[in-house]
Design a protein around this nucleic acid. Structure first.
Lengths: 153, 153
DNA sequence: GTAGGTGCAAAGATTTTGCAGTGCT
DNA sequence: AGCACTGCAAAATCTTTGCACCTAC
């Protein structure tokens, strides 16, 4: 997270944005939480600054994403989760059973990404990629891949 | 689509569900449209049966997914798109520039999927996988990967 | 001083749910 | 005839927007 925290102010300034405590809080929350929805980010922030508003979180995330300090991925359902761009690009694994999120290094998908580039000329945004499936624990628990009214992905 | 249409009734009956014209319409719409959101499915249906309600579409999709006749994938933003399970499993490519959706055979991702299984014990639901990026056309158009207020993924 | 930013409240968009009537089996 | 299904309307989510005030620069 070093790179992200050190010059985060400059990144904003360079694009004509201002540095505000709210934006700093949002960035810290994202870094600290790892994966977080806007709601979770708000909750984190409110433990130290209760007055902050949810719409501010949304707007801050938009700006921080714009300048490349955070990204988001769609983990299923309607929940976007944000995470810091801390150098290590990773792919998200979402379990349909327990909804846990795991991350794997982007290079595990390199072969696939290269194939897409070669075959389709498609430039993959690896960090945005989400893989749905069942984690080891849920497989062992014998959960079916899809069960009525439970799959909220 | 042969397999899907031939015995679709049995699939429902087998799980204790009933066969209704609305469900047939929804299935036909999904097969015909290829990729479709609930709204699009409703629009398709209403050209031949105006009375059908959106909530019925949602409920029908839930049931059809339950019995394995359709699946959905998250193409970004909050938009789930449904498609028929017609034998050919595929991965979705979504362009962040033009929002076009392309499909590639699941086996292109086989190496990646195997690696996840081996390394993490994670059982991937390939058909549910969505890859974000830029299609060839948008790359050539020189679109940036992310531009203010435009990336609705 | 003056953009840009924030908080608040209201508007949007999308999906779900309760209920009474309808129709598949 | 019984119970699942549908249509309708209201509720629940989640996200965006308008506006007046505030603040970083």
């Amino acid at each position: 997270m070093a790179a992200a925290t050190q010059a985060w102010g400059e990144r904003l300034r360079a694009q004509g944005y201002r540095i505000t405590p709210q934006r700093q809080f949002v960035l810290e929350a994202v870094i600290d939480l790892g994966h977080a929805t806007p709601e979770e980010i708000l909750a984190w922030i409110q433990t130290r600054s209760p007055g902050v508003n949810l719409s501010t979180v949304y707007r801050a995330l938009e700006v921080l994403e714009e300048v490349g300090l955070v990204t988001h991925a769609h983990l299923g359902h309607g929940a976007p989760t944000y995470h810091a761009v801390d150098g290590e690009v990773h792919v998200h694994l979402v379990c349909a059973g327990c909804h846990d999120v795991d991350s794997v290094p982007a290079q595990m998908a390199q072969g696939f990404v290269d194939a897409l580039e070669r075959d389709r000329g498609f430039a993959t945004d690896i960090g945005h990629m989400t893989v749905q499936g069942l984690c080891r624990r849920c497989q062992e628990a014998g959960k079916p891949t899809r069960s009525r009214g439970v799959d909220r992905t």
